[in-house]
Simulated scan of single mutants.
Amino acid sequence: MSGLLLIADHASNHVPADIDLDIDPVLLDQHMAIDIGVAPLGRLLCDRLDMDGIFGPVSRLVIDLNREEDAPGLIPQESDGFAISGNKLLDAEGRRARIAHHWRPYHDGIAARIAADRPRLIISLHSFTPRLSARPEEARPWQVGVLYNQDDRAARPGIAALRAAGIVTGDNEPYSGKVLNATMNRHAEGNAIPYLGLEVRQDLIGDEAGVTAWADRLAPVIRTVAEAV
């Protein structure tokens, strides 16, 4: 293997049969439930770069795997203006059970993988919607955003390589890694491993052609960053 590890927290919209979110099922195919395009893009990048990958197995509406265990939004009660009614009914025991069944095994698995075969670079892959339903007037012009918190060893060459490739790149946009970076804070910064946090705009990777095109564009960037760190 290449010594690279890809982590995609929000790659699935799966809701276990024993969980009732009490929402319109159409929401499960939208950005509040899953990072659109991330699963196929992540798998293609893993194939292109001989890279191992860890893909979150449940919808972020079941539990947000990119949040700290005690974060208020860990089990969301609303998302982009839509109420997640089933989560509002969850009591303290139900919350503890959901964390124990889904959040802890996921993060324990990442920790074990890193301990067994320490990667030299972690790639965190997410995607973002071109605009939020709650704020439709705020278009997001970036094609890719690079997120980071304290450790910018991979972010800096990543931003430079993306921009050199003609990609409209956000520096801690459309989200700041200084606010939303839980998985990388825990497993990358916590282990002093450099990481490249990539957010790809969802309309660019919403179909097979887009996924292939962006794998073609992002694979060389990841190679460049891996050589730089």
Rank of each mutant, 00 (worst) to 15 (best):
G86K: 08
G86M: 12
Q143T: 09
E189G: 10
V200E: 01
R153Q: 15
W214R: 02
S133L: 14
A112D: 11
P194G: 14
N191A: 14
A111Y: 05
R201F: 07
A188G: 07
S85A: 15
P136V: 10
R95M: 11
D151V: 00
R96Y: 02
T224I: 04
D171M: 14
R118M: 13
A160G: 02
K88R: 15
S127A: 03
R113T: 06
S85W: 13
L147K: 12
E199Q: 09
W103L: 06
S127T: 01
R201N: 06
R153H: 14
V221G: 00
I193G: 04
E189W: 10
R217T: 08
V179I: 08
A165R: 13
G81F: 10
V146M: 06
L180H: 13
I123E: 02
T183S: 11
N181P: 00
A92H: 13
A100E: 15
L147M: 15
H102N: 05
A139I: 08
G145R: 02
H102D: 03
V200W: 00
N181Q: 02
F128V: 04
S124E: 01
D91K: 14
L198W: 05
P136H: 11
F82M: 09
V221M: 01
L147G: 08
G145W: 03
L132R: 01
E208D: 15
R131I: 02
R96C: 01
S124G: 06
M184S: 03
L180C: 12
V179E: 04
L132C: 05
G86I: 10
D151Y: 00
R104H: 13
G177I: 00
L204S: 03
A111Q: 06
L196D: 12
A160S: 05
D80A: 13
H107W: 00
G145V: 07
A182D: 12
L180Y: 14
Q143I: 08
D151G: 00
R95L: 09
L121R: 02
Q143K: 13
S85G: 09
H101P: 05
I123F: 05
K88G: 14
T183V: 06
A219E: 11
W103V: 04
R186S: 07
A112K: 11
D108I: 01
H126K: 08
I122T: 06
G166I: 08
I84A: 09
